[in-house]
Nucleic acid binder design. Sequence first.
DNA 1: GGACGAACTGTACACCGTCCAGTACGCTGG
DNA 2: CCAGCGTACTGGACGGTGTACAGTTCGTCC
Lengths: 184, 184
Amino acid sequence: MPRTPGQRAGLTYDAVLAAARDVFAERGRAGLSMRSVAAQLGVAPNALYSHVADKTALVDALLDDVLGTLAPPSADADPTTGLRDVMLATFDLLVARPGLVPAYLERQGARGPRARALGEAMTVLLARLGVGEDAAGRVVRALIVHTLGYAALATADDATLSPAQLRADLEVTLDWLLVGASGS
Amino acid sequence: MPRTPGQRAGLTYDAVLAAARDVFAERGRAGLSMRSVAAQLGVAPNALYSHVADKTALVDALLDDVLGTLAPPSADADPTTGLRDVMLATFDLLVARPGLVPAYLERQGARGPRARALGEAMTVLLARLGVGEDAAGRVVRALIVHTLGYAALATADDATLSPAQLRADLEVTLDWLLVGASGS
DNA sequence: GGACGAACTGTACACCGTCCAGTACGCTGG
DNA sequence: CCAGCGTACTGGACGGTGTACAGTTCGTCC
């Protein structure tokens, strides 16, 4: 429904974010453009810039949003399995929504509030493994890098290995990292 | 120097690749476009398509080319340090040329002949560590994913950690992986 | 009620990858 | 030696991108 200039469409930041999520879900990462999001809202492309600084800011918000659907590890579970399970859940999440991984890679990881919250939950578990606060950062980084990398392999266009195989591999190599972390 | 249509500029595949390398070195990944490469050669943009299928094919070739500057691990070195050194050299290579990492991430890793050669050299070393041929693939993958990920962190725009710190972290976590690999 | 700031519009700029049709060259067969 | 052909190149264009600029109109506050 076209509007005469100046009229308010009632956009909000959240509405823009929701529209971006819809477009991403329907048309994938390649189909996510300022114009497509604006079209989804029935609005001129540049209208989005009243609510969002950049395209990159928009996808950053979108990516962090996705992380919110991840159940944080319960603090009283066995630390090792708890950590492994979060990372495997992350892997599953990324693999289930193709196109998500390239977006994360392009932004070289998410730094939003949800990402930070997850990191802190992991740090708590690591503390119970005997890993100090300073070393915890290193371990969290290692686990995340590893998991994201395997998700990237699993969703690559010319993937020679099945996601299931890679998931099994990830499980093994995560354990290597966790063993190394707790033994140092 | 403009040419009348039909005249030959004497382009070759290698010349295009070299021009791409130059443009990349000078203007980085964002500045690498078909048009900029063509301009570097004094040629119309679409002239490149006589020698290169795609832009993606061009950057794939470019990325694999870069890997050629990496010294393969000597087969008679200590396997563990040999493997660690290749990965650290890879890290250094990626960090030294900013913009390289995003390109690799975008293509989700290199699959060219040089990449394969490196992988095979690593497999040889792993065999001397007692890692069978089938498991070697898994370990090589883990090491590469890990290294590339750390290089990504080191070259991220908002990098909070210095490359040197990350390199040290990488050294530690690579050892965790190698210990896990040889102990299984 | 008049001013103001913000939300929106149309338009436009500077790019991008790539396709299409044409042209002129180099090579090869006769 | 010359005709013909394949191909390396050209100009031009298409459809797309992110985003800046200026204008219009609305809701709100003094």
